[in-house]
Design a protein around this nucleic acid. Sequence first.
RNA 1: GGGUGGUUAGCUCAGUUGGUCUAGAGCGUCUGGUUUACACCCAGAAGGUCACUGGUUCGACUCCAGUACCACCCACCA
Length: 911
Amino acid sequence: MLPKAYDPQGTEDRIYSMWEESGAFTPSTESDKETFTISMPPPNATGQLHLGHAVMLALEDIFIRYERMKGKEALWVPGTDHAAIATENVVIARLQKEGMAHPREELGREELLKRIAAFVETSRDTIRSQVRKMGSSCDWSREAYTMDPTLNRCVNEVFVQMYNDGLIYRGNRIVNWDPNLQTNVSDDEVEHVNRKDPFYWFQYGPFQIGTVRPETKFGDKYVVMHPDDERYREYKHGDTFECEWINGPITATVIKDAAVDPAFGSGCMTITPWHDHTDFEIAQRHKLDYGQIIDFEGKLLSVAGEEFAGLPIEEARPKVLEKLEKKGLVVRVEDNYEHAVAINSRGKGKIEPQVRLQWFIDVNKKVVPWGGKRFGVLSPKKMSLKEVMQTVVNTGDIKIIPEKFNKIYFHWIDNLRDWCISRQIWWGHRVPVFYCTKCGDSSSPESGQYVSVQLLPTCPHCGEFVEQDSDTLDTWFSSALWTWSTLVDKSLTEDYSLSLKDILEKSPDYQRFHPTQVMETGYDILFFWVARMILMTTYATGNIPFETVYLHGLIRTREGKKMSKSDPETCIDPLEIIPKYGADALRLSMILGQSPGNDSRLYDEKIAGYRNFINKLWNASRFVFMQCEEAKVDLHTIAISYQLSADSSLADRALLSALQDLIRDVTEGMEAYRLSDVGERLYSFTWDYFCDWYLELSKGDANPAVLVHALRTLLLLLHPYCPFVTEALWEHCKPQEAPMLLTMPWPEVDAKLHDQEAFNQLQVVIDVISSIRVMRAEQDLEPAKKVNVVIHSKHGSLLENEREHIIRLARLENLTIDGNPQQHENAASTFLQGTEVHMPLEGLVDKEKVRAKLIKEQASLSQFLTGIQAKLNNKTFLSSAPAEVVQGEQEKLTSTQEKLAKIQERLQSLA
RNA sequence: GGGUGGUUAGCUCAGUUGGUCUAGAGCGUCUGGUUUACACCCAGAAGGUCACUGGUUCGACUCCAGUACCACCCACCA
């Protein structure tokens, strides 16, 4: 016999190995079944499983398991990410801990990359096993990695193609430079944090200028103001003047530009184009000179003068201030000026804008012949990458769930600037561009510059050795190819005679499983990743990467804060939860009661609640097994399908009918991606209907065949949500020949078992019992006092042959019915004739209460009726509404009239 | 500054095109209970003018407008 409580720890690992070894996670490329594909957002190869992964894995596993059971060839491609900056930093930090002061310099590029790759290899098993702990039914035989050679080939192919299309260009632009990590980061990776700092006002010739960063002001020789600012009308654009500044007198020029807000402070400012985005743009507009003030480590350059050169900016600030103070140029200082400081979201280092030579993707150039979601449909009208991104969502080729993210997505695209794709770190896909110093010509920046998919050892022009660009690509560049690069045939990527198009056409997995159906991920990487996948995949393959984007919300602490490892008090670690409550309980607690795209909170009691549910299911199954044992029925020989027989009781027929409704609702809900609704429907059906009513009614009168059939159906329906416990129970009750639960076909509605009448009748019984319970709780019953009880059911009346049922239920409720059996018979017959029953029970129900309820119902119904009547008399409605709507209203009208008549009757009988 | 959401029981949240919802669930609280699975249980109770103000409608938690507060995202205000 099974133990009283379900033990996840002793079950889950065994079940997972069983699944994995069976090969059921690996779909066939051969079959002609419809496919369903999900690409798993790859966790960091060196990372640890956190709740963000857990919720992603749970949702995707539900999708995949459902579709697999629906008979589709379901492929879930797992993988890991090389996480460029994060991984390189971890390895460097480790080396430094081991005593190596400057790992980059000491090891050199080749050796450091080897060390990083080795580190990834040794630590990747951790995340792999943690993904398994969640029950993820992904195809490990197709596991991918963003630094695979295959992916590198794809990256290079796309880069070269974009370069040749003029979509990738190199330019001196202002970038978000992180002096700590010695690299630039994309706009999306910059966070803005509000901070309070002193704000200084300086005299700059005849003007007053304000700044929080006096240390950047050495090279400022332009003063800018709004062209319409009346205060400065006397100054003309291009006027020059002499003025005293930090390191002596300078010549300054007046510039008029609309970027200046006249309402802010004095309405004029000086600019530092090399270290500020706005200033850079102003300088570009007016073709102004600009120079670097701060070096890439964050120290002042020689332009600051001997006194300050080489000083880190934090140290320089007070000294610059002191000097200006002495010169009498400080007008005033405002304390606590609130402004935003740019921070690198990876590593949290401060961003110092710098001008650097970088690679960019042009999002506005119209060169993409996008013609729809299928490959090969080319449009004569060329679009820009931006426009393609907009088009695929606009036309519905890609659907975003929840819908509200459409707006956010479009808004982001509207403000999208060219994407800076080069990074100054070593770990990543190296920019496939090669430079020949001999052929290079300073007057033409592109001379001596070659793009190449393959490593280019010598210059194709002069035969000299060439040097590869030292930068690597933004990690999102390679991630953006994820849905299809993981399906490319590895052997083909070694053949350099093939084009990317050839490779795709010859890759069986790509042909069969792409585009993918669902991209499920957190809304926080909609821009980083989802949008970039759309951009790159439509361009590179002529195909959309996925049909539906399902965005989940963030999991927060009980207090609503973001989970962070630094706060172990409130941070929930899935790896601690799984042994304690089981992966199934964790999955349910993250999915039920949540809506997509909204953040949710997770805490211990919530998970415990779902653990209780899992245990409830376990015990309900035990009960079923015990009933079978008692009846000496071998449950493995019971057929999977059930057919009604003459001796099927009301309870049986009602349950079977409710089960059909359940199958229908769950299936419809799954198709519409309403995961929370479906989960809650299953939860309440299992607990509130199956356990609380059907199993209770079975006591003393069990029908093993129905019990087993219902239990099996529930296990099938629940399997995507809680795969471990359902599979474990399935082992105990499956038909002999049936396979594992995960490969069982999804249950279908059996119309023959649908019996609404039986369901309604049982509902009457349930109402009766409930009323009696309420009555007993409400009233202090004096055993000696016998009174008539009126019970009302809103569900109609019982059939004659269900008399037995009532009697049995009354016994179940321990109701001491008056000793006179005839009287009880009478009560039951009364019940049969109407919807009220007079039973000589030990209680009393207030007739007035019932009356009040009925009157209220009557009032609301008649109002409803007036409404419909008005609608049906409205000519505009009749002419504009579709025929089926009008008919629906008519049906409502008749049914409401019938209901009103019934209420009338009841009221009369009460009087 | 721009945008997007939220405001429903003590707490955490559902509520799919406006009407069979007399607004639900879980947790918590209270009362009673060891009845042929389950105390990780059973039966029941209390608890909500669905943020506020108007509007549309026969009818609004649901649609519209405005207000307040909260959250998040984006942004070059020195």
